[in-house]
């Protein structure tokens, strides 16, 4: 058993060492190892298919390098391809020309939206913004309380006119939240919403109504890094349902390989903007495509070797 893709590729190329060329057969066996590694990392099947096809093309046309053996050469190609897809159009948050900037959070149940509201609030505040959080999840028991506690910890005000637990209209709260922010001169409004399934048409419509009532500058789709093949249907359902402008990958402090990053990017083309890496308010960072690439394929050592070559 080989721990990671680099090891497996190295092993499958052992007999070829020194040959320094990629034959058709080399490429075939490599591509099947890559497919396996991607699937083990939870990259969604349709994305795996497209990805391996691209790698196959690039490997075929690759220039034969003197410095690298075939395994290294393929890893280099795979890595470059991954970084390109993950980072293609990496960008910053979009701010409104006329404040307040409105950021709406959306995603499946338990993905990490409410926690993210606090993290974003903290992060923006540190940059001199004056954010406000809006409690538009009136469904999950004590979601409003949770956001209030989070806001208090972050030192960021929370707009929570309704108690929640099934009472109140989330659309009205979102609308009045933006109004309030405008009056109180908050520069950013972050709207926390209830978790919902991609297949729940009624709840998706509610998200659309929140969106239409607040005209967000960013809709961030929060996705749990542990998600498997369902990443595709879910990302697609949110993209088609409410639409989103960027992705936040949460729980990246775990040991999941996080193939979802590639899935969501491959399926919706939307960039991953941030990574959530813990339960504390400061466990939050910009997304690093290169780190993510080597995490997905567990290729750390191999890349170091290649860089030294």
């Amino acid at each position: 058993m080989f721990a990671n893709l680099s090891d497996r590729l190295t092993a499958s190329f052992k007999q070829l060492r020194g040959k320094g060329r990629l034959s058709e057969a080399d490429i075939d066996s490599t591509v099947s190892e890559i497919r396996r590694a991607l699937l083990e990392a939870d990259v969604a099947l349709p994305v795996v298919r497209e990805f391996t096809a691209n790698v196959r093309e690039r490997a075929k046309g690759a220039e034969v390098s003197q410095a690298l053996n075939p395994a290294q050469q393929v890893v280099k190609i795979v890595n470059a391809e991954l970084v390109e897809i993950l980072g293609g159009q990496s960008r910053d948050l979009t701010f409104a020309k006329h404040p307040p900037t409105v950021i709406m959070l959306a995603g499946l149940q338990g993905a990490g939206k409410t926690t993210l509201a606090g993290k974003l609030g903290t992060w923006l505040k540190d940059q001199g913004h004056t954010p406000m959080l809006v409690a538009s999840d009136l469904q999950r028991p004590n979601a409003v309380t949770q956001l209030q506690v989070v806001g208090e910890r972050a030192g960021v005000p929370v707009w929570a006119p309704e108690p929640g637990n099934g009472v109140g209209d989330p659309v009205a709260v979102a609308r009045s939240g933006v109004q309030q922010a405008r009056e109180k001169m908050h520069s950013v409004v972050i709207i926390d919403t209830a978790g919902r399934l991609g297949v729940d048409a009624e709840m998706m419509q509610q998200a659309v109504d929140v969106r239409d009532a607040t005209d967000p500058d960013e809709i961030l789709f929060v996705l749990d890094a542990m998600i498997g093949q369902d990443a595709v249907s879910t990302a697609q359902a949110f993209a088609d349902g409410v639409g989103f402008t960027g992705v936040v990958l949460s729980k990246l402090d775990g040991d999941a390989r996080g193939g979802a990053a590639l899935s969501v990017r491959g399926v919706t083309g939307k960039p991953v903007l941030f990574a959530s890496v813990g339960e504390k308010l400061t466990d939050f960072e910009r997304f690093h495509p290169d780190r993510m690439a080597s995490r997905i394929l567990d290729m750390g050592d191999m890349l170091t070797l290649i860089e030294q070559a």
Partner: peptide
Amino acid sequence: LDATTGQNGMR
């Protein structure tokens, strides 16, 4: 275990 969990569920 969350049904959406991928291979990390085993771990």
